[in-house]
């Protein structure tokens, strides 16, 4: 199969690049040193396309397309960093910040948080939308991990890693829209979960301080998501 993959050429930010035809715009961009911001994407997990940070312009297509889920095609002309995209990304990130209660100063992931760093990356100086300030619970019932909904951005990396890599599917999302929330089993305290294997992968793929190890103080929770591609590969070898 793999031998029959065609090589195609396309343009990313005015640069001609070659790619295999089953690759995504994001993969090709990365291979060629073009950085596209992402939040929900994580190498090793099925892409979701929900965070919208990686949207790009493709000539001839009126709507913006997520780079993480759009496969390249011959002659495609992609723009990843127009002024309009920069502005929209900043706006999207502001919506992220306005949704829950992200108080970096007192967060265990302070300094290691992808959301926090993304604000710097896209030059978001402040949030000009009103904050929604929802009341969110902190689930500290598990003896090793803590789930703090205040910091959750619903990227579903934890849900995907729990299902796709660990295979226990303890985590999922309940409700919908602005009410959506990560749950464990039947929306019960994590500590009562019978399906959780305590593997901790969810904690390490979480981009923010929503999932942390118990006992971590402000700025102590660094994550080790770099293990994930390795785990994915191992799984693929097994199956």
């Amino acid at each position: 199969m793999s031998s029959s993959v065609n090589i195609i050429t396309l343009t990313i930010d005015e640069k001609q690049v070659g790619a295999r035809e089953n690759q995504t715009i994001l993969e090709v961009a990365r291979e060629n040193g073009v950085e596209i911001p992402t939040m929900c994407e994580l190498k090793g997990l099925t892409p979701s396309g929900g965070c919208r940070m990686c949207v790009v312009e493709v000539a001839g297509i009126p709507k913006l397309l997520p780079a993480c889920m759009t496969t390249v095609s011959e002659g495609m002309v992609v723009t990843t960093n127009s002024e309009r995209l920069k502005k929209l990304r900043k706006n999207i990130l502001e919506l992220f910040f306005s949704e829950r209660n992200h108080i970096c100063a007192v967060c265990a992931s302070n300094g290691f948080c992808e959301l926090q760093l993304m604000a710097q990356k896209v030059e978001m100086s402040h949030v000009h939308y009103p904050y929604l300030y929802p009341h969110c619970e902190v689930d500290a019932s598990h003896n090793r991990f803590v789930l703090d909904h205040n910091r959750c951005i619903l990227c579903t990396r934890c849900v995907r890693v729990c299902d796709e890599i660990e295979g226990s599917h303890t985590l999922d999302i309940k409700g919908r829209g602005i009410e959506a929330q990560v749950i464990t089993d039947m929306d019960q305290p994590w500590g009562d979960s019978e399906t959780c294997t305590l593997c901790g992968k969810c904690v390490h793929v979480c981009p923010t301080g929503a999932l942390i190890e118990r006992g971590m103080a402000v700025g102590e929770m660094s994550k080790r998501k770099q293990l994930l591609p390795y785990l994915t590969q191992m799984r693929e070898v097994k199956t």
Binding site: F97, N101, I103, H126, Y133
Partner: peptide, 19 residues
């Protein structure tokens, strides 16, 4: 100049905001 997180985001004082 909004000086520091409290001025920029309302930060720690905002922790009462959902009550």
């Amino acid at each position: 100049i909004a000086f520091g997180d409290c001025a920029v985001t309302s930060n720690v004082p905002s922790m009462r905001n959902h009550y």
